[in-house]
Write a protein that binds this DNA or RNA. Structure first.
Lengths: 115, 115
DNA sequence: GTAGAACCTGACGCTAACGTCAGGTGCAAA
DNA sequence: TTTGCACCTGACGTTAGCGTCAGGTTCTAC
């Protein structure tokens, strides 16, 4: 598939896809004319990037994790990297729960006041 | 307290505090000489902002929510705003859990491979 | 009354993740 | 073979949340 189709199926912009390639996240074959050609598996890959992005990971971080993800990351450094990112995620989730709880306080307080 | 002290106690930079004021999040009295003076309650307020920031809320969004937070938000618009923000938070938490699960898959897969 | 730390207001710099031209090329259909 | 849409490569623009001068003032201590 070409880039427009991948963009449609994965729900991101064409510009974003070219950006991912620029950052070393996404590879593509080229047609004789120079246009990008993707395998259908690229759709899942891009969606995976979106998931990681929304979790607060940067392109650089994702690029660092990619070897682990693709090859299964068996070196100590890679496993440590995965672990530390996992812990960072847990930390972020705790922050979110904290924020959520604080918002709930505000909400219930305002409801009580409107009775 | 003055801005340096508030910065120290709340754990953010002086620049950040001035930025919050610029965005309408934080108010301050002024000494006759023009220096900012804060009440001790400002520490908690700033920490609250940090919590919301880390949860992915923008300054603009926080500024919109402030009236609800300070006065208890009783108008329908304000309650709706609180609710929608709460739902957005829940959505973000779900994304985090998804990402976390995906990372766990990678981690357990890599461990299995290294055995 | 003076040194020096802390403060002030601009104002420009920075990074990430794209958006958005501009100017030119590939490709599929009629 | 000529539309005309999709694609290409630069390259500059944008937003948020500050960092970082610069050049000047206030406050506190001695």
């Amino acid at each position: 598939m070409r880039i427009g189709e991948l963009a449609k199926q994965s729900g991101v912009s064409v510009r974003a896809l070219r950006y991912y390639e620029e950052q070393g996240l996404l590879e593509s074959e080229r047609t004789p004319g120079g246009q990008r050609e993707y395998e259908s598996s690229a759709v899942d890959r891009v969606r995976f990037f979106q998931t990681l992005y929304s979790a607060g990971l940067s392109s650089r971080r994702i690029a660092e994790l990619l070897p682990c993800i693709d090859t299964g990351g068996t070196t100590k450094e890679q496993q440590a990297m995965l672990q530390s990112e996992r812990e960072a995620l847990a930390h972020r989730m705790a922050e979110l729960q904290e924020a959520s709880a604080r918002l709930d306080e505000v909400i219930t307080a305002s409801k009580a006041r409107s009775l």
